[in-house]
Amino acid sequence: MKSILSAFILLSGLCIQTAQGQGTPKVAEDFKPSSVNQADKQFPQVNSQRRVRASIAAPNATKVQLDLGGVKYDMVKDANGVWTGESDPQDEGFHYYQLNVDGASVPDPGTLYFYGAGRWGSGIEIPSADQEFFALKNVPHGLVSENIYFSKLTNAFRRCFIYTPPGYHENAKNRYPVLYLQHGSFEDETGWASQGKANLILDNLIAAKQATPMIIVMDNGYAFAPQSKEAVAKKERPESVFEQVLVTEVIPMVDGKFRTLADRDHRAIAGLSMGANQTMRIMMNHLDTFSHYGGFSGTANYPSSDALDASTFLDGKYKDGNALNKKIKLFWLGLGTKEPVPFPKSIGAFKTMLDQQGIKYVYYESPETAHEWLTWRRCLYQFAGKLFK
């Protein structure tokens, strides 16, 4: 009894210390430069606790903050005018961030720049336990090429990035299936090959004989019809013509310039978030063009989480489940377990409709990830391994 009482007193004392802030975990001083830093730049850094430490020389500034994950962390200036500070532990994966210098949000000069949140800015890679599937390895590598074209529908030059698999240029006889892969809102055609590591994911899958060699086309999901001067002056919202650009301009161009298997059985379409919304609508409007679909963190009912009526949703295109099961070879959905509202609810409502109609689909959840690139890398990894089988 005495020993039990002593243990209780000791435990109570530890609880009091924690409540008084004396039990706050110490910051581990094992920081290492981020894998997406500019050459020879030592900051930002990441430690084993997944904290981010940033540093910037700003001797004349009065306040500098690290702005990461929606939280601003105050940084401290030393005698040489260098500000340094660190964040709380972050989720594994890739994250956009910026520095706030006297109220002005600026990119960190230590990192490579990535297009996200509607601008070019900084990114940080928090090492993940499963990063081997998108790591740069000593395996045969494909080629990501920039393809510039003129769009009559937008009356402007556009570009897409195209991944051709290992062996494409060595064997001029082989033809390949094609995946059209779209980015999310406020991102662009650079996202999947840069933040998403799409080429490395496919290189590794193909080397392990876990995926069919394929071409991947990554275009810009923002495509608008030309506006009159009056409409521009009135700041009217331009008409999106991305669906028409993809179907009538990009696909014929790709089939004409690359050795594709140019039929619906060998053509897939997928996207993340906004791209999931776009590609689902495009597929359902063009089932004669696509036979495989992947939606990562999104569906065509985003952002609504209301119950869906198959007889009216997307003009009733889901009301005949048997017909769709015969037409669609792979219907694939993926989501992170930490996704914010409304994504779980909207995708949940969509899945309920599919179940009610008897429509076959594959569903995947990325453990402990939110609405960010590690979720979508994992989704692509899982999805690509099932394509064109």
Rank of each mutant, 00 (worst) to 15 (best):
N100H: 09
D102I: 13
P127Y: 01
A129W: 05
G123M: 09
G110Q: 05
A135Y: 04
P89K: 04
T111V: 06
G81S: 02
G103A: 05
P107V: 04
Y73T: 06
S87K: 01
G110C: 10
G118E: 09
Y115F: 13
W83D: 06
G116Y: 13
L112W: 08
F94P: 05
F134P: 03
T84I: 07
V101G: 03
I124S: 04
G81C: 08
L99Q: 04
L68R: 09
L66C: 02
G116R: 05
D108F: 11
W120N: 11
G70E: 05
Q65W: 12
P127F: 01
G123N: 02
G116D: 13
P127Q: 05
E132W: 11
P140L: 03
P89Q: 05
Y73V: 04
H95F: 08
F134W: 09
G70N: 07
S87N: 05
T111W: 09
S122Q: 07
A129C: 06
D102Y: 12
F94Q: 08
Q131S: 12
M75F: 07
K63R: 13
T111Q: 02
N138S: 13
Q90M: 10
V144R: 07
W83I: 08
L99D: 03
G116N: 08
F94Y: 15
L66G: 01
V144P: 01
V144T: 11
K63A: 15
V101A: 02
Q98P: 04
N147T: 14
L112M: 15
S128K: 03
Q65D: 14
T84P: 07
A129E: 14
G103T: 08
A79W: 07
F114H: 02
G69V: 03
Y115Q: 04
E92F: 08
I148N: 15
Q65S: 12
G69A: 01
D78E: 07
A117W: 14
A117V: 10
Q90D: 01
P89I: 01
G121P: 07
D67G: 06
A79L: 08
L68G: 04
N80K: 15
S145E: 13
H95R: 10
S128V: 02
